[in-house]
Design a protein around this nucleic acid. Structure first.
Length: 271
DNA sequence: CTGTAATCCTGCGAGC
DNA sequence: TGCTCGCAGGATTACA
C-alpha cells in the first residue's frame, strides 16, 4: 500500500518522535511476517538509542547508536507508529518496542506482506537494497530514464512500478504520474519520444512531491508515524475513480489491467 | 531472455 | 440482514 510519499511521511514523523529515544524491550506476536523475526536480534536492539531515520524507495531504516539498523517495509497494510502510554494494542500488532519515555514503537500489519529485519551495519543493508532498487526518482538522470524506456516493450506503467528501474513508485502514483504527463500507461516504453520520457519523469517527481506535502494517501490502512491518515487521496485525478469525469476534459475515466494491476487513465487526455 | 500470472494474507465493499 | 465474490497501496517466484 504505502508508496514513496507514505514511507517518506512516516520517516519524517518518526524522526521527531524516535530520534534520541532508546528501545528498552521487544515484544512480538507469533504470526510470521514476510521476513521472519529472529530472536537473536533482540539483544542487539534492547538498550540501543535511535540515531537516525532514513528512507530508500519504499524501505524505512532506523539507525541505532550501535551501528545496527532496523529495516522496515510496510507491504500493503503496514503501520509503523509511536504510541502514547496506556493505549491498548490493536489487533494485528506484530512487534512492539517499548521506549525510554514510556511510549511504544509498534509495527502493525493485517495482511502481513510487510517485514522488519535487523542489519548489523550499514553496508549490509545498502547491498541488499542496491540489488533490488534503481535510483530515487529525483536522482534518476534523464538519459538513464530514456535508456530504460527505450530498451523494452513493456508498458510505461509497468516500468514506473518496477523498483529496479526507479525506486518507490507503486500503483497509485504510477497512474497519477501518467495522467499528469498526459501519457497512456499502456504505451510500450520504446515507443515514447525523448520529450515524452522527460515529461513523464518530471510529472512523476511533481506528483510525488505534492503527495508528500499532503502527508501521503490514505485509502484505508495507511497512517503516518503518529497514527494519522494522509490527505492526498482527495487529490487523485484518476486513481480509484473509474467512470468518473476526467478533471481535465470530463471524459469518463477508464479502468484496465496492466501487468496485473488495476490502472486508471483518461482515454482523451492521455495519448 | 522477457513479460505476465500466481502467491503470500486479511478485510471490506459491492452485489445478490 | 447475511452471504459470497472479487479486489486492495507490494515483492517474489514460478511459468509461458
Amino acid at each position: 500500500m504505502p508508496e514513496l510519499p507514505e514511507v517518506e511521511t512516516v520517516a519524517r514523523g518518526l524522526r521527531l518522535l524516535l530520534v534520541g529515544r532508546a528501545l528498552v524491550g521487544v515484544h512480538r506476536s507469533r504470526k510470521a511476517l514476510r521476513q521472519t523475526w529472529t530472536r537473536s536480534w533482540e539483544p542487539m536492539l534492547v538498550g540501543r538509542r535511535v540515531q537516525e531515520i532514513l528512507r530508500r524507495g519504499k524501505w524505512l531504516l532506523v539507525g541505532l547508536d550501535s551501528g545496527g539498523f532496523l529495516m522496515v517495509h510496510l507491504g500493503m497494510t503496514g503501520q509503523f507508529t509511536v504510541v502514547a502510554p496506556g493505549v491498548a494494542a490493536e489487533n494485528h500488532t506484530h512487534l512492539v518496542f517499548p521506549l525510554d519515555n514510556a511510549h511504544e514503537l509498534r509495527f502493525r500489519d493485517a495482511r502481513r506482506f510487510g517485514s522488519v529485519t535487523y542489519f548489523s551495519d550499514r553496508p549490509t543493508w545498502e547491498a541488499f537494497l542496491a540489488a533490488r532498487l534503481g535510483p530515487e526518482p529525483w536522482d534518476m538522470p534523464a538519459e538513464e530514464w530514456q535508456a530504460a524506456l527505450k530498451e523494452t516493450k513493456r508498458p510505461v506503467k509497468a516500468l514506473l512500478m518496477d523498483q529496479k528501474v526507479v525506486a518507490g513508485v507503486g500503483n497509485i502514483y504510477a497512474d497519477e504520474a501518467c495522467f499528469a504527463a498526459r501519457i497512456d500507461p499502456r504505451r510500450a516504453g520504446n515507443r515514447l519520444k525523448p520529450v515524452e520520457a522527460d515529461r513523464l519523469l518530471q510529472s512523476l517527481r511533481a506528483v510525488l512531491t505534492r503527495a508528500i506535502e499532503s502527508g501521503g494517501s490514505s485509502i484505508r490502512d495507511y497512517v503516518n508515524g503518529s497514527g494519522e491518515p494522509g490527505g492526498f487521496q482527495k487529490e487523485f485525478a484518476v486513481y480509484g475513480r473509474p467512470g468518473e469525469p476526467c478533471p481535465n476534459c470530463e471524459r469518463k475515466i477508464k479502468n484496465v489491467r496492466i501487468a496485473g494491476r488495476s490502472t486508471h487513465y483518461c482515454p482523451r487526455c492521455q495519448k
